[in-house]
Structure formats: C-alpha cells, structure tokens
C-alpha cells in the first residue's frame, strides 16, 4: 500500500509516471464534451477536510469523479469529529464502508501519518499544518514543465512567508529532486532559522528578478501567525511584493510568476500581474486537476511489470 504524505514518498520515476498520466488525462479530457473516463469505476475516495480549502478540495473531488470513482466528503464541523471522535476511529469507520483511498487536509502536522500507520487504505496528504503539501508541489512542478518544457537547472526564487509555508517546504523537496537551484527571499521573521543547505537566501527582490528564471510568491498566512508575530503590510509590499513597477522589469525579462493561491491581490502580487500572460497562477489551478487525477490513478491502479500495457 502506497501513501503520499510528503514528496519524499515518491521517486523521480513515480513523479514522471504521474506527469505522464496527467499529460494523458489533460489531452483526452480537457477539450471534449464528456469529461470522464471509467478508470476507477467502483472505487470510493473519501475527502476529509478539517481546514478551509477551495482549490485542493474541489480539484480532488473532481479528479476522483472524472475517473469515475465515487466520493464522500467529511468536514470537521459537520462530522462526529466535532463530538470528539479521534482521527483513528474516523478512519476505522470509513474503512468499514469500503473506502479505497483517503485524501486528508488537517491543521496538525503529522495527522495523515496517524491514519496511514493504520494501514487501512492509501492516504494522500492534501496539506498538514505547516509541514507538507506534496500535491501542490507536484502540480507546481508539472506547471513549470508545461511552461518551460523542462524543470532541471531552472533558478527558482520562492518569495514571502517561507516560515509558515508547507507549500515552500514541499517545493524545496520537489525542485531539488529535479535539480533546480532554489533561492528564498522574505522578511527575517518569515524565514526559518534553519534553511536546507542548498537553499540560497537572496538580499532583495531586484536580485531575484535579475538572476532567476521564475518567481514563486507565497501567501502571507495571517491565520498561522501567533500573537507575537506581526507584519507591516506597507513595509512588506515595499520590499517583497510584485508591484506594478517591478512587473515592468518582469515583462522585460520575460519571467514567469507563480502563486499557490488564494492570492492576496495588492499584497503579494498586484492584480495587473496576476491577470497577465506572465502569470501561471490559473494554469496551476487547471493543471492541478489533471495532476491529482494522475496521483489517484497511480495510487489506485495495479501496476505490473510483466504485462506490456496498454495494448
């Protein structure tokens, strides 16, 4: 039984296989009237979301449905978890209904491991606390691949609230796997005191625009701040935001910008840039669906070395 809790659960071969599946799903489904294939007919995917989410929840639900799996959604506030049922018992209960795979988003780091260690069904981490968001990293890398035709060797600057960001952590892992050069930039209060050895800290945003191929902006995660953490928006914007003036330089250098969403327009990136052709923000959303279809198909299909598939 395979789980996807962090990017480290995948080999480069696994990631390639998922990307190939995503390619095929995109190619076969995106433009046609019947947006469904029967691959996972009869399977059931449970979605357990204890934190707000639009993109991740909707795209996982649609991914399962477009593969013809049934889905069931459990939210903390309307389930027995509100009455104090533990994660383990919730998982055991779901397993009695014959669930084939669980997608979990949880505010506590490590929550997916609690369930995966029970060995009931494959578990996919859709974001746990500040720790990990592997499916976001996969869709980011896939979007980069679609846009640049390669990933290896690109210089990527990740800008903003690194400290609270599971997206940054998972992106470090996947970009490293593909041999990218990783740079970070942000207020000292938002940069972890311990950075991985291969991650280089930049001095200012101008340096990122001059030297990198791609700028990845993070959302300031106000909801994860403790009482002592404060951020002055004006100072932040002056130093780290993609303002209209900086956007002119981005255009000149023909760089691409990314953001995991939801974007705080006018804080991390100005609207003009978000909606421009230099922004991959909505491509990330679109490809996210097909990458998540690839993840579900990969984890739920039997793989056999002997059989020459598919024909």
């Amino acid at each position: 039984m395979r789980h996807l809790i962090t990017v480290k659960d995948l080999s480069l071969e696994d990631v390639n296989a998922i990307f190939m599946l995503a390619d095929s799903f995109y190619e076969q489904i995106d433009s046609r009237p019947i947006k469904k294939v029967p691959l996972l007919t009869g399977k059931t995917v449970a979605l357990l979301f204890s934190e707000p989410s639009t993109r991740t929840r909707v795209s996982f639900e649609l991914a399962a449905k477009r593969l013809s799996a049934d889905t069931v959604t459990i939210t903390q506030s309307t389930s027995s978890m509100k009455k104090g049922e533990t994660l383990e018992d919730t998982a055991r209960t779901l397993s009695q209904y014959g669930i084939d795979l669980l997608v979990i988003r949880h505010s506590k780091a490590g929550a997916p491991d609690i369930i995966s260690s029970l060995g009931l069904f494959p578990v996919v981490n859709a974001g746990d606390g500040k720790r990990s968001h592997p499916t976001q990293a996969l869709l980011d890398a896939y979007t980069i691949y679609r846009e640049y035709g390669k990933i290896k060797g690109l210089k990527v600057a990740i800008i903003g609230d690194i400290l609270h960001s599971r997206v940054a952590r998972s992106n470090f892992e996947i970009l490293r796997m593909f041999g990218c050069r990783i740079f970070v930039l942000g207020p000292t209060s938002m940069i972890p005191s311990y950075l991985p050895e291969d991650v280089v800290r930049l001095e200012n945003i101008e340096q990122a625009i001059e030297e990198c191929d791609l700028l990845y902006f993070l959302r300031i995660q106000f909801e994860r701040f403790n009482e002592r953490e404060v951020v002055d928006i004006d100072t932040y914007r002056r130093k780290y935001a993609l303002t209209r003036e900086r956007f002119e330089k981005i255009k000149k250098r023909d760089l691409r910008i990314m953001h995991p969403g939801p974007v705080n327009r006018g804080i991390e990136i100005d609207s003009e840039a978000v909606d421009s052709e230099f922004s991959l923000v909505f491509k990330q959303v679109k490809f996210g669906l097909y990458v998540r279809m690839g993840i579900l198909a990969y984890l739920l299909s039997e793989r056999s070395e002997e059989i020459e598939v598919p024909y």
Binding site: S301, R303, Y311
Partner: peptide, 21 residues
C-alpha cells in the same frame, strides 16, 4: 488511446500512455 477504458487495466508506471488525437 484506450488505456483508461480497459477492464483489465494495469498501469505500468514508466510506460508512456498513448496519445489520443
């Protein structure tokens, strides 16, 4: 490409799926 329509599907991870056009 009929990979995703088979009733005896085994996805072999590294094998490139077909190209529908």
């Amino acid at each position: 490409d009929i990979t995703f329509y088979r009733d005896d599907l085994k996805i072999r991870g590294l094998k490139q799926p077909g190209r529908t056009s």
